[in-house]
Every structure is written in C-alpha cells, then in structure tokens.
Design a protein around this nucleic acid. Structure first.
Lengths: 220, 220
DNA sequence: TGTACATCAGTGAACGCGCGTTCACTGATGTAC
DNA sequence: TGTACATCAGTGAACGCGCGTTCACTGATGTAC
C-alpha cells in the first residue's frame, strides 16, 4: 500500500498500518466535533478508535500531524462534491431550462456532500485551527487555493457549456456563490436545516443567457 | 454602577469590581484569539490582565460565564456597526447616485467594525464555541436573532428611503449580503486584506430603482 | 508445507507538568459617630 | 476631620486530576530455507 503524504516522497505502509491510521482519523472526526481540536485529548481519540495512546504516537508525530491529514482529506472531499455536481450537470437532458438545471445542481450538491451538524462542526474546527496555528496556516491555505483553482476551471466550463454568462466579474461571482454556500452550512451549526435556496436565487440573479460578443460587457 | 447581566435582575457592583471585570474581558479577547476558547487557560487570561486566578473566580462562575459575556458584547458591537453604517447613509447628500451611496456604505462599514485578524479570529472562536457547547448554543442563537431582527428593520427603512427595491425576496437578499460580509471576514483569518468589493457588487446586482406597484413583482 | 527467526505494530505503565478550582488570608475601601 | 470598625475584593498557596509523551515490552505478521 502506498500513501501520498503531503508533498513528500511516497511511503510504503503495510495494510494493517493504513487501517489503524484510518480508524484514528475517523475517530478524531467525532471527537473534534464534540470537543474542538484543542479540547480533544489524544486519549479520547484513541479510545474512540479502540487503540491505546502508543498506537497514536506510532502513527502520527503529534496532534497537528493528524489535523493536517484530516484537513487535506476534508478539503478534497468538499471540492470533489462540487466537481461531481458540475459533471452531473453535463449529463442532464439538454432540453432542460437553466432554472431547472440550477435546481438540479442544488439537489446534487446537497446530496454529494455531508451536511450533518457533526461533520460541519468538525470542518469549521479544522479551518479555525488552521487559521490559528502558524505551522498549519500556510499549507492549508495553499491546499485550499489549489482545489479552488481546479473548481473555478470547472465552473468556467460548465457555464460556457450552458450558454450562460455572469453579470459580474467571474472572480466575484465565484466568491459570492462560495459565500452563500458557506453561510448556509454555518447555520446548520445552530440547528437549522440545510437550505440552498438562497444560493439558487443568487445563481439565477447573477447569470444571464450568453450575449454575442458585440452586445455583451457590463462594468460593475 | 449598575450592570445588566443577561436577562436577570440588575446587580449593583462597585466601580472597582466593574473595572476588574472589564480588564479580564479584554485580556480574554487576546488569549482566545491566540489559543482558542478551550485552549485558553484561566491562568493565561489572568496574567494578561495582571490579576491572580482568585480574582477571576471572584468575578465569573467559570470560563463559560466569561465567554457568554464576551459573546453578547461582540454581537452587540457587530450590529451597532451595521446600524451606524445605515444611519450614516441617511445623512448623505441626496444628490448622490445609488452606486456612490453603496460605495460610501462599504467604507463606513469597514471603518466602524474592527477588522483586524485578532478580533475576527476571536469572534469566530466565540461563535464556534457557542455552537459546540449546548449551554451556550440557545442563548447565543437567540441573541443573534434579536439583533438581526433589528438590523433587518433598519435595512428595510434605508432601502425604502433610497427608492430602491430588491430583485429577490427580502429575506434572501439579507442572507446573501450577510454571507458575502462573513466570507470576506473569514478570508482575513488567512492573511487577506478586508475587501468589500464583492459585497458591493452583490448589492448593486440585487437591487434596482423602485418600480410602481403595478409594474413591480418578480418571482424567484 | 513446515519451521525458525526477524521485523513490525500496538500495548500499557510510568513520568512530570500544567490546569481548574478552593479557601484562609490581607490589604483596600466604605461607613458610622 | 479623625478614629474604629465592617465589609469587600483580590492574593497566593495548596489540592488532586488528567494530559501529552516516552519506552521497554510482547504478540502479530512477514520471510527464508
């Protein structure tokens, strides 16, 4: 079994070891959500995974190493969900109106990304912890930036394929959509149901059928 | 000196005591930003305020009591800033175009609310801690809801006064503006400069000159 | 396939440290005459 | 204004607990012949 750790060399790891690592990561997920990254003790994580503390230190240098591993996995998952949503649109019947296409996309997006309180709490914890700890800030920001760049490319394609364009600069449109999505997820932390109608309304408002090059162009 | 503690009876407190309380709250602000709410030790907070730990327990039942006090103060401050921004608009010269009016509002908003990394980190910490700890979740959510309701009323007035209307349902418009604002603040956590241009673009996109009742109405 | 040995992965006891919380105390502040 | 006393606010030592981390160990897994 080969595992890619950050940007370092591939490291060969036995299957047993990989499973232990995975179980620790999953257990950490739950404990982080409940206690916070700093509040989660190594003991609690190990107990949740049915290991002793020694096993933890045999697999991770310290807690931050585990946090970084989780951070990468979660960010990846999040952007995979967005990617899937977009590629799902490509297969939609072509006689669908844009309005219905967006509705479909919202359903897909909701389905392909976990939106339970626990997962969202944990993600927020990770993000905040990365912002706070200098050693995590840079690698995390870089990782998000890379994923986001891929996503932007895909959105650009999808929009072009649907014969649509944004009524404001591309970067701002992306930022606003991301903002609306994050806001909705944040509300779930306080018990609200996920509800992407605001994002849907935003998308419909900031897009329009593509105009010919001559007539296009709107300054904002 | 009289201090209003949550919804309980007003409590008479000596001036000396009030000052001690304040110094502890300010100190906690810095320590929370650096270490997180859970990671901040009572010792550190007291040291930053130049008190001993006994003084802390003489003023707060425990750490969560202090967190709740800070939470209320910060939420209040945040909505005060928005309020000020709105009332500042009322005094603007009436020959200003809507575009310039919004630009002014963004400048005001940036100026009336602290947007340094430390403060924003601390606020995010408080929010997340409130989401995580059951005893804080309800009171915090209720507090935010009350403040938000006031703010919505003010926005409604300001929009009406400017002869403007939203192109999508009021609640969604508010949600999107709040989302864009929060998103910008979140980016500051990772070293970005505050930049409300996306919020500005959003406002200009989701508003239009008020139409007469007969011609108005847009379903979204 | 069977045996003997080497390496690996996780165990669990032990350590010392820092934390939250308590409480007898003292110096500061306020009050009565 | 001055004195004597009462109350208040913060001090700092002490407690016991739980944490992160280490490490000698053992049982599990893999390898060579």
């Amino acid at each position: 079994v080969v595992v890619q750790v950050s940007e370092e060399q591939p490291v060969v790891v036995s299957r047993r070891r990989a499973q232990t690592r995975d179980r620790l990561l999953v257990a950490a997920t739950h404990v982080f959500a409940e206690r916070g990254v700093i509040g989660a003790s190594v003991e609690e994580i190990c107990e949740a995974a049915a290991f002793t503390r020694g096993a933890f230190y045999s697999n991770f240098a310290d807690k931050d190493a585990l946090v970084l591993a989780l951070l990468e996995a979660e960010t990846l998952q999040q952007f995979e969900a967005a990617k899937q949503t977009l590629s799902g649109l490509r297969d939609a019947p072509s006689d669908l109106g844009f309005d219905e296409l967006v509705t479909r996309a919202m359903v897909q997006l909701g389905a392909s990304s976990p939106s339970d309180r626990e997962t969202l709490l944990m993600r927020q914890e990770l993000m905040l912890h990365a912002a706070r700890v200098p050693a995590l800030r840079e690698p995390y920001a870089a990782f998000v930036e890379t994923s986001a760049r891929h996503l932007r490319g895909q959105i650009e394609e999808a929009v072009a394929a649907a014969d649509i364009e944004f009524v404001l600069p591309f970067e701002q449109a992306i930022e606003l959509m991301e903002a609306a999505y994050n806001f909705d997820q944040n509300r779930v932390l306080f018990g609200a149901e996920p509800d992407l109608t605001a994002l849907r309304a935003l998308i419909l408002t900031i897009t329009r059928p593509k105009q010919t090059p001559q007539t296009a162009q709107t300054a904002v």
